[in-house]
Nucleic acid binder design. Structure first.
Length: 475
RNA sequence: GGCCCCUUCGUCUAUCGGUUAGGACGCCAGAUUCUCAAUCUGGAAAGACGGGUUCGACUCCCGUAGGGGCUGCCA
């Protein structure tokens, strides 16, 4: 007899940002974890825009979230869902709860509630509002707008089984009768989240630690409706370098800011995945590896600090590992996004040939561009003091002598190197003494790719022209 | 204030009662070298503190301290 395999429902995760700004780095990581888990399990990740706060939600912010996710390469399944559009459904559930007796109408004014809290605080009691309408005679109900409150249990405890935080318990007396429906009939976040997650069939709620307390309140709503509670995974927040909450000063920038700094999306995914999750000692990995390795059991419990140095190192590793054509494509997309002029055909092919040298020196696309300035910027170069000095370290006659020897040789890096080395030896100079002025003549800088590689990439004509120009300027 | 969570090198982390506490970034020194990178070798660097439990605690329990979150008719 063969055992029937247990029926495991497919995993459904969701990312549910509120469109009140850009997609910040913490949200991006939450999205990444939800995405990795869905892809790892062969499940789906849904996207829901929590736009019930009409005053703060904007279409621009929604678009920024889409854009950020797209750049990061995090695709979601199906159409993004607007929470606001589901308000009628939320209200319907609230009224069903009233009918079930798990919620009630409350006519207390905000002033009354405020006064209640103040005296409670003054008397040292917990400032949990206790509505007089919870057990009021329905006959006394005024004909006026009301809010709908959850009839939360006052005894016993509520337990959240969190895969990251473990078993977390609250005494029910510390939880209040939260508002489900505002006096204008619109749903609150607490209700909307539960109804949507339930209706969307979400099995795993992966979100920031800041929602842990909300998980208890939401559990109450699930129970009141007799719904299954999803698996919760509350991941620790990302902090700034000083340990405090991430501010704009640190890394709380929109993901597009990282794109603008020239980080590769694959590097961003790698870095973010490593912040709070681990797979043994693996630091550098591809997205495919992350998908196959990702699980919820190796998530850390402590908040992590954002570290640009490590991100940059990882970015450098991804650039070095990327193939040249891919990098060129990323570079051109970057240039376009930065509204910089596109590459000419010549520049494209030169950069492609320079790529092996460029990518081992750069940690961001911005650095590739900078290192490729000998291709992108045409002479005469604006030289700094060190460059001018290096160029003048050798008399123009020496440079002229060398240049004339280069006029009719095979134009390949290795041959050029032999010739220059021989020349330096004949002049009684170290190669460095000759290479440095050469470098400046070719690139206008004291830091660049290898001089022979640059000569080969630039070609005979351009290389000699640059040398001639320097000789002319120097004599 | 109340409730809840967290705490291993500067940073990200491994460890799931027995390790010289490992790796990575960064840092320092050296090698290589036409500059810069890259690469290689070596080095400094950690269990917040105090109590327990145990033959034995980074690991389990309690307390303290520090950090964080929630405490809205925001999400």
């Amino acid at each position: 007899m063969t055992a029937t395999p247990p029926v495991v429902p497919p995993v459904v995760t969701r990312f549910a940002p509120s469109p009140t700004g850009f997609l910040h780095i913490g949200g991006a990581r939450t999205a990444l974890f939800s995405w990795l888990y869905a892809r790892h399990t062969g499940g789906v990740m849904l996207l829901r825009i929590e736009d019930t706060d009409r005053a703060r939600s904007t279409p621009e912010a929604t678009e920024a979230i889409f854009e950020g996710l797209r750049w990061l390469g995090l695709d979601w399944d199906g159409e993004a869902i607007s929470q606001f559009a589901r308000a009628p459904r939320h209200a319907e559930v609230a009224h069903e709860m009233i009918a079930r007796g798990t919620a009630y109408r409350c006519w207390s004014s905000v002033e009354e509630i405020e006064a209640f809290r103040e005296t409670a605080r003054a008397e040292g009691r917990p400032p949990l509002f206790r509505s007089p309408w919870r057990d009021a005679d329905p006959a006394t109900a005024p004909d006026a707008p009301y809010v709908v409150r959850l009839r939360a249990p006052r005894e016993g405890e509520t337990v959240v089984e969190d895969v990251v935080q473990g078993t977390v318990t609250w005494k029910n007396e510390t939880l209040d009768d939260l508002i489900l429906l505002r006096s204008d009939g619109t749903p609150t976040y607490m209700l909307a989240v539960v109804v949507d997650d339930h209706d969307m069939g979400v099995t795993h709620v992966i979100r920031g630690d800041d929602h842990l307390t909300n998980a208890a309140r939401q559990t109450l709503i699930y129970r009141a409706m007799g719904w299954d509670v999803p698996v919760f995974a509350h991941i620790p927040l990302i902090h700034g370098p000083d340990g405090a909450k991430l501010s704009k000063r640190h890394g709380a920038l929109g993901v597009e800011a990282y794109r603008d700094m020239g980080y590769l999306p694959e590097a961003m995914r790698n870095y973010l995945a490593r912040l709070g999750w681990s797979h043994g000692n693996d630091e550098f990995f591809t997205t495919e590896q992350a998908i196959s390795w990702f699980d919820l059991t190796h998530l850390g419990k402590a908040p992590a600090r954002f570290d640009f140095a490590k991100l940059e190192n990882l970015s450098g590793q991804h650039i070095r590992a990327a193939d040249d054509a891919h990098l060129l494509a990323e570079l051109e997309a970057f240039l376009a996004a930065q509204k910089r002029p596109p590459l000419t055909e010549v520049q494209r092919s030169q950069i492609l040939r320079a790529m092996p040298g460029l990518k081992e020196r750069a940690r961001t696309l911005l650095q590739i561009i900078d290192m490729a300035s000998f291709i992108l910027v045409s002479p005469p170069f604006a030289m700094d003091e060190a460059a001018t000095k290096a160029l003048a370290s050798v008399p123009p006659e020496t440079l002229e002598k060398l240049t004339s020897r280069l006029r009719n040789v095979t134009w390949a890096a290795s041959d050029l190197e032999t010739i220059v080395r021989d020349f330096a030896a004949a002049e009684g100079l170290g190669l460095g003494k000759i290479a440095q002025p050469l470098r400046v003549a070719l690139s206008g800088r004291t830091v660049s790719l290898g001089v022979f590689d640059m000569m080969e990439i630039l070609g005979r004509e351009q290389s000699l022209a640059r040398l001639d120009a320097c000789i002319k300027a120097g004599s």
